[in-house]
């Protein structure tokens, strides 16, 4: 049993780091520009498709990932300059509906250009999985603890990326401009920060993190138009956990979410076995569980677990 719990925690941390990156990108954009990007997953998906195309042409994995990320940044700037500048003064619902429109457009474009056939993507890291046997005392059945090394490498990359972004936002001038912009738009203008530049930077960074997450999951999900739709929901949940107010919070929220999800599946599995329900596979309920977690979190604390309290305004 201990092994299964440990196993769930390990798998949970690995998938949670991906949710964390997406949540980080979402909260980066939301905090800085005030736009909740419902097209986040699909923007990442388009970037991955571009990367796949470059890979198919050049056979160079790292070049294609690099160009995919650059494409994501350009796409982010494009969305900021073309669409979001126009709705800046409009209501929340207008911004939301515009991003939903972008979501549909990207989905359609991917289908038109690349078709519905799922495309395979190379693993970035390919190592054999490692098995760890715990001491006999803790592990009577002698089940091994499986560490998928690829996922572990992905996990390390994701963690270091988020640490990089956090350091970037704390230590560099453009990063501090981002933070200042998110704290107070007018105040940032007063001290001479180029708010438009900060907005574009947030979009560029945000979308390229989504593309990056897309590259990490692509070997598993294959490259297809709906590859990141569910991940976007996970990202929302992670960011909701983090309260959309701190980058560390969003990433930590992702990790918590990943572990929680795997633990809940484990519990449900045990429950179903005990009750003798064999028609429902607990893995099918994975997304529902996550979404129930969102709803419950929002009920308990509408601005997220680490979130600041919202003060009303007339």
């Amino acid at each position: 049993m201990l092994v299964r719990i440990l196993q769930s925690i390990i798998f949970g941390l690995f998938s949670g780091s991906l949710y964390g990156i997406i949540g980080l990108g979402l909260s980066l954009i939301y905090r800085t520009t005030g736009v909740m990007n419902f097209a986040h997953g699909n923007s990442g998906m388009i970037g991955v498709f571009v990367g796949w195309t470059i890979l198919a042409l050049t056979k160079n994995l790292f070049l294609s990932i690099f160009l995919g990320l650059i494409f994501g940044a350009i796409l982010g700037i494009f969305m900021d300059k073309i669409l979001m500048k126009k709705v800046k003064g409009l209501s929340h619902s207008s911004m939301l509906i515009i991003t939903l429109g972008v979501l549909l457009i990207f989905e359609g474009i991917a289908l038109i250009i690349w078709g519905t056939q799922p495309l395979l993507f190379k693993d970035i890291f390919s190592f054999p999985p490692k098995l760890i046997y715990l001491p006999q005392k803790l592990n009577p059945n002698n089940f091994p603890l499986i560490i998928p090394t690829n996922d572990f490498a992905n996990f390390l990359v994701a963690v270091s990326l988020s640490i990089l972004i956090i350091l970037f936002s704390r230590l560099t001038k453009p990063g501090l401009a981002l933070i200042a912009r998110s704290e107070d738009e007018i105040g940032a203008k007063v001290v001479g920060i180029n708010v438009n530049f900060a907005d574009s930077l947030a979009w560029a960074l945000g979308i390229s993190t989504a593309v990056f997450a897309g590259f990490l999951v692509a070997p598993k999900t294959t490259v297809n138009p709906i590859m990141l739709v569910n991940f976007q929901l996970y990202g929302f949940t992670a960011a909701v956990f983090g309260g959309f107010s701190s980058f560390i919070g969003a990433f930590a929220g992702g990790l918590i979410l990943g572990v929680l999800e795997k633990i809940v599946i484990l519990v449900l599995d045990q429950l179903f076995t005990k009750l003798g329900i064999s028609t429902i596979n607990s893995v099918d309920l994975q997304l529902s569980i996550i979404l129930l977690i969102i709803i419950i979190t929002l009920i308990i604390k509408p601005t997220g677990i680490f979130g600041a309290k919202f003060k009303g305004k007339v």
């Binding site: 929340h92 939301l96 929901l233 909701v240 429902i280 309920l285 979404l291 969102i294 929002l298 009920i299």
Partner: peptide, 28 residues
């Protein structure tokens, strides 16, 4: 009921989640 505590984007996320949960639950 939960929506009473949420506003704007958060409500949108929650309703989106609700829609997907219902779809998933029915299809399992």
């Amino acid at each position: 009921f939960p929506s009473l505590r949420m506003k704007g984007f958060y409500l949108a996320i929650a309703t989106m989640a609700f829609g997907v949960v219902i779809e998933q639950l029915i299809s399992v």
